[in-house]
Amino acid sequence: MNTSAADRALVMIANCVDAKSLRQIAANARRQGMSTVARAADLRLYEILPSEKPGTLEHDVWRSIHALEDTLTKERGTTTRLSRTRPKIACVGELETIKDLIMRKEPSEGFHMLLERQMAELTFEAVALRHADRFEIAVLDAAEQRLRAAGVASSK
C-alpha cells in the first residue's frame, strides 16, 4: 500500500461506523505491513463498539475493555474476555469498578497490558482523569501518580 492509498484508508477509517469493515481493513493492512493503518482501524473499532453514548465514562470504560480483549484475542489466537472486570462491572457498575482498580496498591494487569501495547490513553487511570468530575480527589491523585510512575504524561 503506497502513501496515498494509506492516506485514503485513514480517511475512510475515520468515517467508518461498521465494525465488520473496520476489522477487514485492519486485517488487510496487517497483511500488507501497514501497521499505522491497522492500528487506526483497530482504534476506530474500539470507539464504535460500545453501545453507551460516546463521551461518557461508561463509553470510555467499554472502549478500554474492547481494546484489551480484542488485542489479547489477536495475540493469543483465541477469544479472550476480561473475566474479572466484566462481572465486577455487572455487579457494582463502571464507576465503582474503576475506583476500586485505581485505589489498589498495585496496578492491575490490564494497566500493564495496555501500556505495553502503547494504549495508555485507554487505561482506567486515563479514563478517570478524562472524567474527573465523576471521581473523588483521592482517586484522581492515585490515577495521576500511577500514570506518572509509568512514565505517561496525563492530561489532567
Rank of each mutant, 00 (worst) to 15 (best):
N2W: 03
N2F: 04
N2Q: 04
N2S: 01
T3F: 12
S4E: 04
A6W: 00
A6S: 07
A6P: 00
R8W: 01
R8D: 13
A9Y: 02
L10A: 00
L10T: 07
M12P: 00
I13L: 03
I13A: 03
I13E: 06
A14W: 02
V17M: 14
V17A: 15
A19T: 08
K20V: 15
K20R: 15
L22V: 10
L22S: 11
Q24I: 08
Q24W: 05
I25M: 12
N28D: 13
R31S: 13
Q32Y: 13
Q32P: 00
G33W: 06
S35A: 13
S35L: 09
V37R: 10
A38T: 11
A38D: 05
R39H: 06
R39V: 10
A40T: 01
A41Q: 03
A41R: 00
A41F: 02
A41V: 04
L43N: 14
R44T: 00
L45H: 01
E47G: 00
I48F: 04
P50S: 00
P50I: 00
P50R: 00
S51P: 00
E52F: 07
E52Y: 08
E52N: 05
K53E: 14
P54V: 10
G55Q: 00
T56A: 09
L57R: 11
L57M: 11
L57V: 08
E58D: 11
E58A: 11
H59I: 08
H59M: 10
H59K: 06
H59V: 01
V61R: 08
S64C: 09
I65Q: 06
H66Y: 14
L68F: 05
E69N: 04
E69G: 03
L72C: 01
K74S: 07
R76Y: 05
R76M: 09
T80L: 12
R81L: 14
L82S: 10
L82M: 10
L82K: 01
T85S: 03
R86V: 12
R86T: 09
P87Y: 09
P87G: 03
P87T: 03
A90E: 12
C91W: 09
V92K: 07
V92S: 06
G93F: 02
G93Y: 04
E94A: 08
L95K: 12
E96C: 03
T97H: 08
K99F: 01
K99V: 14
I102T: 06
K105D: 15
K105W: 14
S108L: 10
E109H: 11
E109D: 11
E109A: 15
G110T: 03
F111A: 04
H112C: 10
H112R: 14
L114S: 09
L114N: 03
L114R: 10
E116T: 07
R117I: 06
Q118N: 15
Q118I: 04
A120I: 00
L122V: 02
L122M: 10
T123I: 06
F124L: 14
E125T: 04
E125K: 09
V127F: 06
V127L: 06
V127E: 05
V127R: 03
L129P: 07
R130M: 08
R130D: 14
H131Q: 05
H131L: 08
A132W: 03
D133E: 15
D133Y: 09
F135G: 10
F135V: 02
E136D: 13
A138W: 08
A138P: 03
A138F: 13
D141F: 13
A142Y: 05
E144G: 15
E144V: 04
E144S: 15
